[in-house]
Design a protein around this nucleic acid. Structure first.
Lengths: 191, 191
DNA sequence: TGAGTTAGTGGACAACTGTTCACAAGGTCA
DNA sequence: TGACCTTGTGAACAGTTGTCCACTAACTCA
């Protein structure tokens, strides 16, 4: 795969020619595989989110609520490790210039948030919540995860201590968030 | 000011020559003001965070806890409006390629989080918390704000409805987070 | 076997890039 | 007035970029 998002570079500072060079191929050969750099980017978005989606399904499969957070963070960190380049790509591009890629990623994250909201709805405490509030909560959790991934890919490559610290904080933040759930009075119950 | 981070472009797809052109000046004249694009970027980071810092001081000045969140979100959204270009710049560059700029911004955000933690320590409920937990909470709140700013600068320019919606969600998320505070058992109290 | 597809080559192009240089207009101030 | 600094100019440089072109080696499969 063409993953030369080497040492902290951004996607749109990557030129077609450099990608081709890194792939050991002449610039023209690039066009045999992708119409443009945008097309390459979109392919990467798709591939990245396929693995991400798989990860989530795994993380939320029939776990007791108590372990769910700990296990989710564990799996998240593990996958960031295994698919580092993908995550770097997603985190960078998600906020970066290229409009079409940015929106593609935003859409994927929205979808991803919705799926989490759906899963959350199964918890007894959350069954009474409005859809709107569920989305809000899911958004909050996803934001925390995104920030965690961002911090992780920004940490030095082989720094287990730093990563452990990031994971520790992330887990606390998620647990704190969930702690609020029983005390939130969702709109529906006041109508 | 040199703020032509026009319509969704990223900072490092901006060339020195284009910046000069947009400023109505010959490329060489750029060097009279900045040593390089990196230097320009660092100047922008500094300027952006100066306004951001001012905003925060204002937002947290002697407000009752009840109004603090609502007012903070209000001020945040207002300032994003007024300094749109700055915020676009910060949000984009904060995750984008250029290593030196990215770290400059990360550092500013860390500082900013610490300041929030200090202010939070004044609340009676939080007085018992460990420093570590305060940082964790501040980080969570800051993450939410960053995500809010990101969503705002990605929304269409003149879309008050979209912005109002974003603000509404942000406020809920912050309120939900604070709702957890009284129920968190900070490490210190168990030692 | 031979026709057709796929993946790659190498050269060429105009456009744009960062940076250097010697030089000119305008303001400040002794 | 004249020296000096600041801010600008215009030409030039070597390097890089995206894209087009005609061509070739290797693979598939009827």
């Amino acid at each position: 795969m063409l993953l030369q998002l080497e040492a902290g570079e951004s996607f749109d500072s990557l030129s077609l020619r450099r990608v081709a060079r890194a792939a050991g191929v002449v610039p023209t050969a690039f066009y045999r595989h992708f119409e443009s750099m945008d097309a390459l980017g979109l392919a990467l978005v798709e591939e990245s989110f396929r693995t991400l989606r798989a990860m989530l399904r795994e993380a939320r499969e029939g776990l007791p609520p108590g372990q769910m957070i700990h296990r989710s963070v564990e799996i998240l960190m593990e996958h960031v490790h295994q698919h580092r380049a993908h995550f770097i790509f997603v985190v960078r591009v998600g906020y970066t210039g290229n409009v079409v890629l940015r929106h593609a990623i935003r859409n994927e994250i929205r979808l991803f948030t919705s799926e989490l909201a759906t899963d959350l709805a199964r918890f007894p405490v959350l069954r009474e919540w409005t859809t709107d509030d569920l989305q809000m909560l899911a958004g909050l959790l996803v934001n925390t995860m995104i920030a965690t991934v961002g911090a992780t890919v920004d940490a030095p490559v082989a720094a287990p201590a730093a990563e452990a610290e990031i994971a520790r904080v992330a887990e606390k933040q998620l647990r704190l968030t969930m702690l609020a759930v029983p005390h939130w009075r969702s709109e529906r119950s006041s109508r």
